[in-house]
Write a protein that binds this DNA or RNA. Structure first.
Lengths: 129, 129
DNA sequence: CCTCTGTTATATCTATTGTATAACAGAGGG
DNA sequence: CCCTCTGTTATACAATAGATATAACAGAGG
């Protein structure tokens, strides 16, 4: 899977890598059991340091998106800790929705936006694998 | 309005201040025209440095939640740049929903969560002012 | 004039981020 | 058995962000 780094973004490099892989899983461009490139290969291909990729992989493992074999490297393996994920999402939404509520974005508009994003996920899903 | 700092959080102090004020506006504990304490008074009351509060206020101004008079200090004044707010929300949701989708949280559950959070906003709204 | 406001300029310290070089242990292939 | 690849760890270094501290400035008002 292609990872693209935005150097103009104020988001840390290792988080960009992390998030793009999670997006890859959500859109089924990456599936359970798929192997990620080695930290060195990934670092080479996107032109950043090995340790930065290693930090991203370690975070992905900690958050339950990959498991790591000594030989196979990082393998997509999503743990289903639904309760924790639900709490994390709620905490994020609490502040994100507060911002949009201040800006007069209605609950219905948020619902529509959710559906729109899920639509994007499904659309990307078809053109892959 | 009472601001509470969580020193165990990994969120920056100035962001905690910023977010709690935005939550205050969303729940109508703060209303258009209300004056925030001066940066020095706020810093004193929550036990942090003046510059940290100043950074929070500057960010609130930049994101369009307050205006600043030389004499009155920071005053709640929400700009309604709906388009920008919508884009920001979408960008945040794209990655947040990807995470929850990986953890098998359904679109319907997200919709329910949205309503639940809006319920919290409305409930807090009644017991204030 | 004195006081309060946000703002700015320094300086200092710590933590985070990113890069760099190097080495280690385990697993597999020739 | 050796060579190579894997993640992992240990350093070191530079740059940036976060938080504190002291100090001063200009504007507005009593």
């Amino acid at each position: 899977m292609l990872i693209e780094i935005d150097y103009n973004s104020n988001e840390a490099l290792y988080l960009q890598v992390c998030n793009q892989i999670i997006l890859g899983i959500a859109t089924s461009r990456l599936s359970e059991g798929d192997e990620l490139p080695s930290v060195r290969a990934m670092a080479d291909s996107i032109g950043i340091n090995m340790h930065t990729v290693n930090k991203a992989y370690a975070l992905l493992r900690q958050e339950g998106y990959v498991k790591v074999d000594r030989r196979r490297g990082a393998v997509i393996a999503v743990s289903n800790d639904r309760i924790g994920a639900m709490e994390d999402l709620k905490e994020h939404l609490r502040i994100a929705l507060a911002r949009s509520r201040c800006k007069n974005i209605s609950r219905e508009e948020v619902h529509r936006l959710i559906d729109e994003i899920y639509g994007e996920y499904d659309r990307e899903q078809e053109g892959s694998v």
